[in-house]
Design a binder for these strands. Structure first.
Lengths: 139, 139
DNA sequence: GTGTTTGCAAACGTTTTGCACAGGT
DNA sequence: ACCTGTGCAAAACGTTTGCAAACAC
């Protein structure tokens, strides 16, 4: 309800769980799912729960510490690299690769090759606040 | 496994269920979820099942009759309009609006306004076949 | 007749949640 | 002391699937 622009900073306790989850995520160049991260964290902290991993990933995302890769149709993956880049996903094995350079123009106009991938297509989706919700928020 | 380029046409039986599902989807300019479509179809065919709706939406999508809007993080929505266009999704209410013109350049470079929406961001994701899977497929 | 499609219900995998307790500040 | 964060387990959610019967061709 009270989602303001600068995303009011919430008070956070600095728990070892959150610290380890972030460390593990930042330590890899893969883009693990919550379950994969859960396995990684469990090696250092055996009694951690999957719910905690989910809750902390959400918190870290809210605070802009990590990126959430909600690739359509498949499980969410997470990225400790918050720098500006895009992703290619393999339709075959699901592997996700970082893309830092979209090539000349930087348009979505379908490149045929990207980071060695044979590109089949792309998805460009915008999100924002619709006219109705803007009106409602103004009150 | 055998996903060839021209997508070999499968033999389809022309069932009333499939016909009605397609009709209902094409009749609206909204982008209904499978469950919403299920409700719509049920008014004309009370005994239809949700599984049938899902199966037929998949079939219609395979055959290129409809578009699947796998907006990240939320349930899949469907679009009877197969023409080339993009979508904006409202972060507030979830409403999805068609966008036929991305504006000058047609780049993802964040427009601040689109179809009356105040744009907060965009997501551009590519999909294709990774080098490893290409090698594997070549054999 | 044959093989696809259906309705039904149960299963699936991911994510979220309720709860009582532990622990950071 | 307060109140956020935790582990645990169960629930919720959207979607898929197994099956026997029904139906299109």
């Amino acid at each position: 309800m009270s989602e303001s622009q600068p995303a009011e900073i919430k008070l956070r306790r600095n728990t070892p769980q959150r610290k380890i989850i972030l460390e593990e995520l930042c330590a890899v160049k893969t883009h693990p799912t919550a379950a994969e991260l859960y396995d990684m964290v469990r090696q250092r902290m055996p009694r951690v729960s999957l719910g905690t991993v989910y809750r902390n990933l959400e918190v870290l995302h809210e605070d802009g510490m990590i990126r959430k890769l909600e690739f359509s149709g498949v499980e969410t993956r997470f990225d400790g690299d918050t720098s500006d880049h895009y992703h290619v996903r393999c339709s075959g094995c699901g592997h996700i690769q970082d893309v830092y350079d979209l090539g000349p123009g930087g348009t979505p106009a379908q490149p045929t090759e990207l980071a060695g991938f044979r590109i089949e297509g792309h998805r460009l989706e915008y999100f924002g606040i619709c006219p109705d919700c803007q009106t409602q928020a103004a009150q």
